[in-house]
Design a protein around this nucleic acid. Structure first.
Lengths: 209, 209
DNA sequence: TTTAATTGACTAACCCGTTAGTCAGTGATA
DNA sequence: TATCACTGACTAACGGGTTAGTCAATTAAA
């Protein structure tokens, strides 16, 4: 308990509350899932009582939805930076994979939101659509653009894989799911796995002779 | 409602009950998850009352665990049949992928158990370990054996991908997760996806010469 | 008639959402 | 600067509804 920082004024505290609540909610919901999380758990984690939560959010469902929105940062911006990259398509594929690994399996926030999407997506179809629009669609589009360009340039083969870009990226999901399943119980060597992924994908795409 | 089959005797009914309950439990748990499923939902689905469930299973937790055990059919046996295949490693890789696609993303049972593993695995660590032993480990081992053999025979490259067999198979998981997320809302062309997967993996593995 | 599978009412505990009341913090007044 | 009336963020306790688990009564097969 540091005492160095001064106690915030009431106005400051009030302005800060919604964010604090949403972040506490994230921790609880991701560990227990929507149904098994009690609103009071969220409050206790923050050091307040349940009533306080209801001053800021009308229902548990709204709390969950807003938590999800607050925690999911769009992926498009990150991907756009790949478009500005120079170099061979092979180099740019590598850059793209690096970014995607950072953003998806290596980022706890994204990883846990994936879990919630799978476990509670039926109850909240909106968050699944958001997840698709903000993560999956942009990533698949980026891979597709890159592969198409490689094919046009004669660098990549024209083949079944080139037409289904998902298969080029899907090992990223593997790492994310692995970590969600086993946490620290079975560790996975991220960089080594990514190298293997890049090696297989690149050689799978490259012109053969 | 066919009336052709005769009413079962009491002994027959009693012998049949546990299975019936476990299958009804599967339907309910996979739709709502552990926490949001009521024991009475399971009973109603079967046309009995809650008390009956408790004649056969002592608690909701035990019901869930036994449901999971009853529904997960081991994968090893299926994989062993690949070992007896003849042909090039490329052919055998194709056969292995076909089997894996049938068993994982195309099989509703396996798919939904994957969802439960992710959503309620924290509460039931045992089922995660079972899942690993019965699905993941055998599949990875089979891929590794095949890739190693291909490398020894000079058919496959020696490279990063050959050392991390997971990347060769991980697109399978992609289809499973996709279907869990979007159900019928965004369909995925299974056979075409598998072709793309095989195309990329095989060319990624093959000797480059 | 005997036996045992099944029922369904019941309990105890739980949890969402509400609200009357509290008190720390604020700012006007002297 | 010191006093104090007032505000509003927060709390504590509760109503109402739900659900896991129990068990005495029921019912139908043998």
């Amino acid at each position: 308990m540091k005492k160095t920082e001064k106690r915030p004024s009431r106005a400051e505290q009030k302005a800060r509350r919604p964010q604090e609540i949403l972040e506490a909610a994230f921790e609880e919901f991701t560990v227990k899932g929507y149904a098994a999380t009690r609103v009071e758990d969220v409050a206790v984690r923050l050091g307040v009582t349940k009533g306080t939560i209801y001053l800021y959010f009308p229902t548990k469902e709204v709390l969950f939805e807003e938590m999800f929105r607050h925690m999911s940062t769009p992926f498009k911006d990150v991907l756009d930076s790949v478009g500005s990259f120079k170099g061979t398509c092979a180099d740019r594929l590598r850059a793209l994979l690096l970014l995607a690994y950072e953003k998806i399996p290596n980022d706890r926030k994204t990883r846990e939101l994936l879990r919630l999407t799978l476990s509670d997506g039926t109850r909240f179809p909106d968050i699944v659509d958001r997840h698709f629009d903000e993560f999956i669609a942009p990533l698949v589009a980026a891979v597709r653009a890159l592969v198409d360009e490689g094919v046009s340039a004669g660098e990549f083969r024209r083949g079944a894989a080139a037409n289904y870009p998902d298969v080029v990226a899907s090992s990223i999901l593997h790492v994310a799911v692995w970590r969600l399943m086993f946490a620290d119980r079975r560790s996975i060597d991220g960089p080594a796995f990514m190298e293997a992924h890049y090696d297989l994908a690149l050689n799978g795409l490259l012109q053969r002779s």
